[in-house]
Design a protein around this nucleic acid. Structure first.
Lengths: 332, 332
DNA sequence: CTGTTAGCGCATTCAC
DNA sequence: GTGAATGCGCTAACAG
């Protein structure tokens, strides 16, 4: 009485078929599959193995997960997967997770509050064992959205009053440090290039870090999604020429370095004496524009690895304070 | 007899709790959850809704999936999530999937054959309804690895004798076309910069495309994972100066454009008359090095969207030939 | 060492 | 309109 019209995606052969062919009980097959070989004669183990092979049996994970209450899958909701930071962080997360038998899967919130919320909903409705977030939304929103109690780790984007562990960069400190370096060289003014996103914690901290050293800051906001390259370039030139002070161009994001600096450099506007450039650069690509440029590099991979480790601790029930781990960035 | 030490990740409240509170049977709750409201008085529907809300009930997706044999999740195994192409393609996939009620999750094979295989295994052992692959492995490997019958779509990386639908770029044609443009302008020689990966289909097709127009090709292989920037730059300079012919530098990947070209450009080595530059560029960032440069741009988003659409067709049982869809790239 | 059995939480006939 | 009962495929005692 086989249903012929089963939806694509089911293997028809199940444990009892394997058991039958191997002439054992399904319990034995289950044991075999779960690695309890010590409670089994090598001989039967082989028979089971053969049967599995012959029938091309693949376990139904939904059934298994229903009783084990675990899928081994950890959801990662990243801010923007076009961003090297996010993807590199994901690689770090996975390296850690996989060493412990878990697997990370990546979702892309696209830096969109609503979308992030939707994804959190989906994740909390699915069979993920935990979630690592690089969140835009606030604590209260996250709490309201993820109803099912599950381990959560916050990565990169610091949030206030987080009930969950956080792994972040020392944004304030490193921005301060870089700015100080240039101040010591005589720079007295900063043009800060940033995305037009609202004052996310990261951006804010960086801003304050700069400001703690040099107060004279012009902010150039560029819309992440759509902007006129030529126009922004022009604005930048105007800003640069708008003051006699030695000026430091400070990009809060690598993208602005690679997109705007080569032209300025080529035009001779950047000479490292009256106009210098620095910024956050994670890929190292910006370095190739001019090898002499000193940049701030974060360590997204390490941030990911740490997040992964914290998640594993949570999953394995080890004590894990809702602490804040700071992964320092480097300037130089 | 509640187990207190349940692993983190279970919501304790289940359908029968909701049913009890709403004073209905679990069947009714189930119907409510599945949208069968027509078979229910508005009054009871409200009671159920209230109960769900009050108890903060969230359905157990593993249980549901076990009986429905569907999770609504589609796995996407991308070649390298550091690559704009992969991530943009994923965005396209998701746009399509989500419009049909599915959700895509991203895995990163890291351009590693074994890792890709492991991921395919994991995916086929989990509850994904289908898989979209940007594969390195050959058909036979994929078939051996993904044992469970499930819808599969191949994106971007063409494979021979594919039993599955493929969505790819016109690599050969567009490379030919771009080369022709420069040949018409008098260029007689090509320096091709490429990753040192084995002759993947994409790379091969692009190479043949160039070759069909200009036969004099120097290939500069750069290891994707680790290479000495300075040294490669030097090699490039040497190659350029190694011939009197007007030379076209052709980068098969945007990365090589953004990493090496700015320096060459700054050094005055690229003048568009004796030495010109072109290549595959998906992000458009390379454009900013020199606005006059003509580049080849693929449409990863569209490739993704098409892949997503094909996948949905497969999932919904619509007839879908194992055809090859070609999404043309643009030069200019 | 191996088999029997009782759920896991939900969707779905089939009755009423 | 609603409920009772059955089974999805598998794991984990509990026996033997």
């Amino acid at each position: 009485m086989e249903k012929k019209s089963q939806k694509h995606g089911n293997s028809v052969v199940k444990m009892r078929d394997v058991a039958a062919l191997a002439d054992v009980s399904i319990a034995t097959v289950s044991r075999y599959l779960n690695g309890n070989l010590d409670r089994m004669s090598t001989e039967t183990a082989n028979r089971v193995a053969d049967a599995i092979d012959k029938l091309n049996y693949v376990p139904n994970s939904a059934a298994r997960q229903m009783v084990k209450k675990s899928s081994g899958l950890v959801a990662v909701i990243a801010g923007n997967i076009d961003d090297f930071f996010s993807t590199e962080m994901f690689k770090g997360i996975n390296a850690m997770l996989e060493s412990k038998g878990y697997v990370g899967v990546l979702f892309d919130s696209n830096s969109d509050l609503d979308r992030e919320k939707r994804l959190m909903q989906i994740v909390s409705n699915q069979i993920f064992d935990g979630a690592i977030l690089q969140p835009y939304n606030a604590v209260s929103v996250i709490q309201d959205t993820i109803k099912r109690p599950m381990p959560i780790v916050i990565a990169d984007r610091e949030i206030e009053q987080s009930p969950w562990p956080q792994i972040v960069t020392n944004n304030y400190e490193i921005a301060r440090q870089a700015t100080q370096y240039y101040k010591d060289k005589g720079f007295k003014r900063v043009i800060m290039i940033t995305s037009s996103l609202t004052m996310a914690a990261n951006r804010r901290d960086r801003y304050y870090g700069i400001q703690s050293v040099i107060n004279n800051i012009d902010v150039l906001e560029v819309s992440e999604k759509s902007y006129n390259h030529k126009k922004v370039l022009q604005q930048l030139v105007t800003l640069i020429n708008g003051s006699q002070e030695d000026t430091l161009i400070f990009a809060l994001k690598e993208r602005w370095l690679t997109e705007f600096i080569p032209r300025l450099f080529y035009k001779g506007l950047i000479d490292d004496k009256h106009v210098a450039v620095t910024g956050f650069s994670d890929t190292g690509t910006a370095q190739y524009i001019d090898p002499k440029t000193k940049l701030i590099s974060q360590d997204p991979y390490l941030i990911g690895a740490d997040s992964g480790e914290v998640m594993v601790n949570l999953l394995e029930g080890k004590k894990q304070e809702p602490e804040k781990i700071i992964v320092p960035a480097k300037f130089g």
